[in-house]
Structures are given as structure tokens and as C-alpha cells.
């Protein structure tokens, strides 16, 4: 079975387990279960996964723990930022003396070449760059804005931005909406189902 067919089977099995198939679709899927071992195994596998999801400590830890490699990934970004700031500061240190006093004779002393106020400015800028990043890192993976977090997640998992990868067909949306409003314990909302 190729990946697409397996994904389709898993999604059908999930909808069956979620009681989101119509009675006719449920009966048809159950007839398939009589013969299709892969469909039977998909059911068993999804019961395991969904029960495991339910068994997670969501209450204690609203968003389950972040990936360890996130910290590493962002630490590397901090190092790059700090290195860049340092390079910028050194470049300014090298360039500024000539610009400030092009007629000055070489004295062999950097301190004498750069006016103290400009040196202080460059150092202050570099220090700001260096000290701000660790503070951000201290707050862990949450320091990125929501949009950036999503972008990063899509780097970690190439298909992460793929809610469009599975274009939910309109018939499925309508079917789910109908099933949920028909048999669910919860009232279906009347609004915010645009795009159906």
C-alpha cells in the first residue's frame, strides 16, 4: 500500500473511531473490516494513538514539552547573531579612525586613533546585541513570535505548513458538520463555518 492510500485509510479509520461517519459510511467501512486486514490494523493502531494522546498530561503542561533540539537550534542562532555583532563592531573599529582623521599620522595606538565617545557608542551597541540574545534564549522556545514559531516548525518538519497539503473536500466538511450537528453531545455552532 502506498503512502497516499495508507493516509486515506488512516483518515477514514480515524473518522470511524471519532463517530464522524454517517451510518451508511460506517456500515460500509465495517463491511470492509471483515476482509481487509490493513483496515483492521489501522483501527487498532489509531485506538492506541488516540488513547495515548488522551493519556498525556495536557492539563499540567498545556503545550507538551518542546523539542530538545529547539534549544540547540536557537542557541546556534544566538551565536551567529553575537558573532555578527562582534564582526560589525570590529569593522567599525577598523574603519572609523581613517574616516575621523584621514591626515593623522600613524601612532601605533588604537586608543589614540578613535575618539572615546565613538568607541563607547560602538561598544555599547555590540554589548546590547550580545546581552539581549541570552535573555531571549532564557525564555526557551517561546521567545519567538507565534508566526515565527510556526515558520520554524515548518523547517523542522518539511511538511508542517501543509494544512493545505490535504485539501479537505467540501463534501467531507459538509458530512462532518452534518454528523456533528446530528448526533453529537455538544451543540454545533451556527457561525464561523465559512469556507464550507
Amino acid at each position: 500500500m502506498n503512502d497516499t492510500r495508507r493516509e486515506d485509510l488512516d483518515w477514514l479509520a480515524f473518522r470511524y473511531l471519532a463517530a464522524e461517519l454517517s451510518p451508511a459510511e460506517s456500515r460500509e467501512f465495517e463491511r470492509r473490516l471483515e476482509q481487509d486486514q490493513q483496515a483492521r490494523e489501522a483501527i487498532g493502531r489509531l485506538v492506541e494513538v488516540t488513547c495515548a494522546v488522551r493519556g498525556l498530561a495536557w492539563d499540567a503542561d498545556a503545550q507538551v514539552a518542546p523539542r530538545p533540539r529547539d534549544a540547540w537550534y536557537r542557541r546556534r542562532a544566538v551565536y551567529w547573531g553575537a558573532g555578527l555583532a562582534l564582526s560589525l563592531a570590529l569593522t567599525l573599529l577598523l574603519a572609523l579612525p581613517r574616516r575621523v582623521d584621514p591626515t593623522r599620522r600613524p601612532s601605533g595606538s588604537w586608543a589614540g586613533a578613535l575618539p572615546p565617545a565613538e568607541l563607547a557608542l560602538v561598544w555599547s551597541h555590540a554589548r546590547m546585541e550580545l546581552t539581549e540574545q541570552p535573555e531571549d534564549e532564557a525564555s526557551g522556545w517561546q521567545w519567538l513570535a507565534a508566526g515565527e514559531r510556526d515558520a520554524d516548525a515548518s523547517v523542522a518538519a518539511p511538511s508542517a505548513s501543509d494544512e493545505t497539503a490535504f485539501e479537505t473536500p467540501e463534501w467531507m466538511v459538509s458530512a462532518v458538520l452534518a454528523m456533528e450537528s446530528e448526533g453529537g453531545d455538544q451543540p454545533a455552532p451556527t457561525g464561523n463555518v465559512e469556507g464550507i
Binding site: E20, T168, V176, P189, N192, V193
Partner: peptide, 21 residues
């Protein structure tokens, strides 16, 4: 899914797509 879509302010199809993915 209808409740989820309403609470998150997203279309139902988007909620289904996220779940499937």
C-alpha cells in the same frame, strides 16, 4: 470539529486539515 473551528476562528475545513495532517 465544528466547535473547534468556532473557538479558533478558522474554517471547518482548516480544522479537519490540521487534524488529518
Amino acid at each position: 470539529f465544528a466547535i473547534i473551528a468556532a473557538e479558533l476562528g478558522i474554517p471547518l475545513g482548516t480544522a479537519l486539515g490540521r487534524m488529518r495532517t
